[in-house]
Computed example of a mutant assay.
Amino acid sequence: MKIVALKEKPWQYRDLSSSIFISISEISESLNRSKLAGLIDIEGKKIKRNALMEFIQHGFKYVFPQLPGAIVNGIPTAHSHSFYKNQIVSQLLIVWPTPDGSVRGQSIQPLHKGVVKAIEYDELFYKLLASLDIIRIGKVREVKLAIEELKKHIL
């Protein structure tokens, strides 16, 4: 999602690593898996956008399942993200747990612990991750809304 958020800006492994607080080796491993899965090109620089969207729509929730857990302080995600709050009405707040969190809600684990810091510097990246969290835990109508938003940025 960070590569999607960068749009067409050039990047290197160290750029991704420092911007999403993930080690260069983890970036390398992730990109190698993505090449093998056909989600990025063989050089590892261009996203195969249709393949990525197909994976998100049909496989993401199975590969990264999540159930909301305990009530904790955290950062709003999924339908609790500010972009979705007016579109999806829910009494339940969903958060990534962090002691510095601004709200209390049911916790879900982020895709990686580094994203909690990374979203402070990239609002689009934050919205894309919140959209993925809707796919992980949302109801059918919510998931359709998140998929439509992701399509605007991926396709």
Rank of each mutant, 00 (worst) to 15 (best):
K61Y: 10
L31S: 10
Q12P: 01
E120Y: 04
P110Q: 02
I147W: 00
D15C: 09
K127V: 00
E26T: 15
D122W: 02
I71Y: 03
N32P: 03
K35M: 14
E123F: 03
R141S: 08
S17L: 12
N73Q: 11
I75D: 01
P99C: 06
Q57K: 15
G101R: 04
I135V: 13
E149G: 00
L6V: 06
D41I: 07
K2T: 05
L150K: 08
G59Q: 12
T98C: 07
Q109V: 09
K144A: 05
A146Y: 01
F21P: 11
S28D: 14
L145I: 07
R136C: 03
K48D: 13
V103Y: 15
D122N: 12
W96F: 13
I3M: 13
I71M: 12
H153E: 06
E29K: 15
D15N: 15
E54A: 09
D15K: 13
E148L: 00
P68I: 07
H112I: 06
R33M: 12
L111I: 12
R14W: 07
N32K: 15
V95I: 13
I137L: 01
L155K: 09
M53G: 02
N73I: 08
I42H: 10
F60E: 03
I137Q: 00
K152C: 06
K61L: 05
Q87N: 11
G74A: 09
I71H: 02
S80E: 01
Q106L: 12
K2I: 06
S102E: 05
I75V: 14
P68V: 08
G74F: 13
L6T: 05
I71E: 03
L93H: 05
L92G: 01
Y121N: 10
L132Y: 01
I94L: 04
S131M: 00
A5Q: 05
E142M: 00
E120P: 00
A118D: 05
V143H: 00
A78M: 06
D41E: 14
L52I: 12
K151Y: 04
H112P: 04
N73M: 10
P110R: 01
P65T: 08
R104H: 12
K151S: 09
G105V: 12
E142S: 07
I119M: 10
P68K: 08
I119E: 00
I47Y: 08
K48Y: 12
K7F: 05
E29D: 14
R49N: 10
Y84M: 07
G105T: 05
V143L: 02
G44E: 09
Q106S: 12
L145K: 09
W11M: 12
L124T: 04
V72L: 08
L129S: 03
A37E: 14
G114K: 02
S34Q: 14
K2Q: 10
L52G: 11
Y121G: 05
A5R: 06
L52K: 07
Q87L: 14
Q91F: 12
L6A: 10
I40E: 04
E8C: 07
P65L: 08
R14Y: 13
V63W: 09
G38W: 13
Q87F: 06
G44H: 11
E149S: 01
I147M: 04
R49G: 08
I22C: 14
D122I: 01
V4R: 02
E26A: 15
I147G: 01
P99K: 14
K85N: 03
I134M: 00
A37P: 03
L16F: 11
E123D: 09
